[in-house]
């Protein structure tokens, strides 16, 4: 198993090197590392590989809504130089442009909302498709065979479902855990699959994108506070055991606390996954910065090890996000008669 992972990692690393080497034509060191940020950020096109001057990219739809012009659809190729595939303000199309930092702008500066299907959106749909396929095949097993021992996809999903139900939901939420189990399982699997698929070469850094982690954190925030019971709100607005004057300080702190929890969730996942990608790509960039084969060999070995660690991080981060979500929900629904104050 370890050997397989090693072999795969080396292959992936080689693929990544191959993938990105065109970015390292002679240039400043900044140019040689720019692909790192390019990779971890979202993009309006999906760039796979460059052979000489041929760019293998998947053009993606650019969707814009503005109050004055309504909903508009473009292709990412509309905003590119046809030869170099470079974005730039000079390639504006129908009043919009995508600048060198892959940022959509409007020529006249008026406000608009961007709803483009970016690289990460496509990645998200791929993750969701894979997850839905695996989960539905697993569920199909029970539909077909009844409540028997798991096989196939069910054998993969069932231990996770049981783990999330028994170890995360039941332990952290308490007696009312059942209602939240489906959300927690979906959350865990979406983050886990996103983390793992994001490690594939050429894949998008989905779970290391702050918009994605923010959306998930906001969902957790909504679920937590919608289900908050009397005790929970009393704890926030009239913390038991605290003298009235102290409440002037405590209540704002508690209210800030409501928001710091999802904020921490958002930042933790984003940082952990993005940092992993940056480290892997950084090791790859070393070979080009030093322009040395020896460094290339060393960095490939390092990339392999980091990749293995990233597999672990992928699981840990999915677990941590789910566990904290469960704990926050648990805090909101717990019925406790306590005297201690926090």
């Amino acid at each position: 198993m370890t050997r397989k992972i090693l072999v795969l990692s080396i292959l992936f690393s080689a693929f990544l090197l191959f993938n990105t080497n065109s970015s390292f034509a002679a240039g400043s060191e900044e140019d040689k590392t720019s692909f790192i940020m390019h990779h971890v950020k979202d993009s309006h096109e999906w760039h796979f590989a460059t052979f000489g001057h041929t760019h293998v990219t998947l053009p993606l739809p650019v969707i814009v809504y503005s109050s004055d012009r309504g909903l508009e659809f473009f292709s990412s190729t509309d905003f590119q130089n046809h030869d170099t595939h470079a974005f730039g303000k000079e390639y504006a199309h129908e009043g919009y442009y995508i600048d060198e930092h892959d940022h959509l702008g409007r020529v006249d500066g008026a406000s608009f909302i961007e709803l483009s299907i970016t690289k990460n959106v496509v990645m998200m749909f791929i993750v969701m498709f894979v997850l839905a396929y695996v989960a539905l095949s697993a569920a199909n097993h029970y539909k077909k065979n009844g409540a028997v021992a798991p096989k196939g996809a069910a054998a993969l999903i069932e231990p996770i479902v049981i783990f999330v139900r028994d170890e995360i939901a039941e332990k952290s939420i308490g007696p009312k855990y059942k209602k939240f189990v489906p959300y927690l399982i979906t959350l865990f699997l979406f983050i886990w699959f996103g983390n793992l698929l994001g490690l594939l070469p050429g894949a998008a850094n989905l779970t290391g994108n702050i918009a994605v982690t923010m959306t998930l954190a906001v969902l957790t925030f909504i679920i937590t506070n919608v289900n908050g019971n009397k005790d929970y709100w009393k704890h926030v607005f009239a913390t038991p055991g605290v003298p009235i004057p102290m409440l002037l300080i405590i209540v704002p702190v508690e209210i800030i606390g409501l928001f710091t929890k999802p904020f921490a969730l958002m930042v933790r996942l984003f940082v952990a996954i993005t940092a992993g990608h940056v480290v892997i790509l950084g090791f790859i960039a070393l070979a080009f910065i030093f322009e040395s084969y020896a460094i290339g060999v060393v960095s490939t070995v390092m990339v392999t090890f980091i990749n293995i660690i990233e597999l672990l991080v992928a699981t840990i981060q999915a677990y941590v996000f789910t566990l904290f979500t469960a704990m926050y929900i648990g805090g909101a629904v717990a019925e406790h008669a306590h005297d201690e104050h926090h």
């Binding site: 709803l115 994108n209 702050i210 918009a211 959306t215």
Partner: peptide, 16 residues
């Protein structure tokens, strides 16, 4: 990197 894209939030919310 740290500015959430509106499109991604929108699709993520709907998709999720």
């Amino acid at each position: 990197l740290i500015t959430p894209g509106s499109g991604l939030i929108f699709w993520q919310l709907i998709g999720f």
